[in-house]
């Protein structure tokens, strides 16, 4: 796979987010995240709910609440997203540099206005198109790119099916021609056919638009279908970063948590990982997965360093290498 050789669109270095809670409690939502996404590449950030992946997305968009502190770097071109002020984020980042594809498109669209009027407003705000006909045709071409049918443009969001609402939201995200698309759980609550469809369309935007896509999801099948690489997040840390084919196929994932996650799938062993994820406000000193891990040893009392994209003291070794 050559995509990773291209210069990264987004480069995240040591990103950490802490929430300061009343009573002086600190919640380590994201800790020391490192990853890159290149143009034409899709990285899926997977993990269970509450592992910190949505916080990571909010940090990139500058949408953290006031009680959050972030550290590290997130470079998008020349800009460090974490250091940018609100004005820069509003004027140049959201929509123009990062297109957001939301979790629930129905809630993302304004209920009282037609899809066309929302698209035209976004076109007017984000592009150079001026004048009624220019804005109108730009909006129509944005809809076309997202495969949103032109004869549905004058409908209101509640008149759209789930799939069409998702396309409308995608069309809005594509208007600004942003180099990075960020999709936050875009398939939650959709049925399998619709998931496949949505995911394939997103993939098409990556392939033909030279865009980078960062998709946040807990749906492993969707991640397998769309992503070039997957980053597995556990308790605020990225514990494994791997090529999709190697991760889902052979040799398979190497971190014990990733292995457990795949084994839990109904098409595999359908066995849950014992226990529950730790509280982000009360993480153990060493490896956060150690209490649930079958491979646990004394070494796990120390925090594992990330070597060759795995943060584990004893990652799984594929059979053919053991001999």
């Amino acid at each position: 796979m050559t995509v990773t050789d291209r210069p990264p669109v987004l480069s995240v270095r040591g990103l950490s987010v802490r929430f300061l809670m009343p009573g002086g409690r600190r919640i380590a939502a994201v800790t020391d995240a490192h990853f890159e996404v290149a143009a034409g590449e899709c990285l899926a950030l997977i993990g269970e709910s509450g592992c910190g992946k949505s916080v990571l997305a909010s940090a990139l968009l500058g949408l953290l609440p006031s009680n959050a502190q972030s550290a590290g770097q997130a470079r998008l071109g020349e800009l460090d997203l974490l250091a940018a002020d609100e004005r820069t984020l509003t004027r140049t980042v959201r929509g123009r540099l990062i297109g957001l594809i939301p979790q629930s498109p129905a809630a993302h669209l304004t209920p009282v206005r037609t899809v066309r009027s929302q698209l035209e407003e976004t076109v007017g705000a984000l592009t150079d198109a001026r004048g009624r006909t220019a804005v109108r045709s730009a909006a129509e071409s944005a809809a076309e790119r997202a495969a949103f049918p032109a004869d549905h443009l004058d409908r209101h969001p509640h008149q759209l099916s789930g799939g069409l609402a998702q396309r409308a939201a995608t069309a809005l995200a594509l208007v600004g021609d942003a180099p990075l698309l960020l999709a936050d759980e875009p398939t939650t609550g959709l049925d399998r056919d619709l998931v496949d469809h949505t995911v394939d369309e997103l993939r098409r935007h990556v392939d033909d638009g030279d865009r980078a896509l960062l998709m946040i999801t807990h749906d492993l099948a969707a991640a397998e279908r769309i992503a070039d690489r997957v980053a597995v997040m556990y308790a605020g840390r990225i514990v494994e970063l791997a090529n999709t084919e190697a991760f889902f196929g052979t040799p398979g994932p190497r971190h014990p948590y990733s292995r457990g996650l795949l084994d839990a799938l109904p098409e595999r062993a359908f066995l849950p990982i014992p226990g529950m994820p730790p509280e982000l406000g009360d993480l153990p000193d060493g490896c956060a997965f150690a209490p649930r891990c079958e491979q646990v040893t004394d070494a796990c009392a120390a925090l594992p360093p990330t070597t060759s994209h795995i943060a584990c003291h004893h990652p799984h070794v594929p059979e053919d290498l053991r001999a």
Partner: peptide, 14 residues
């Protein structure tokens, strides 16, 4: 289990 991750799904079904 529509909103849940694979491991929690497997645990609830079990």
């Amino acid at each position: 289990t529509a909103m849940l991750d694979a491991s929690t799904t497997a645990a609830l079904v079990a």
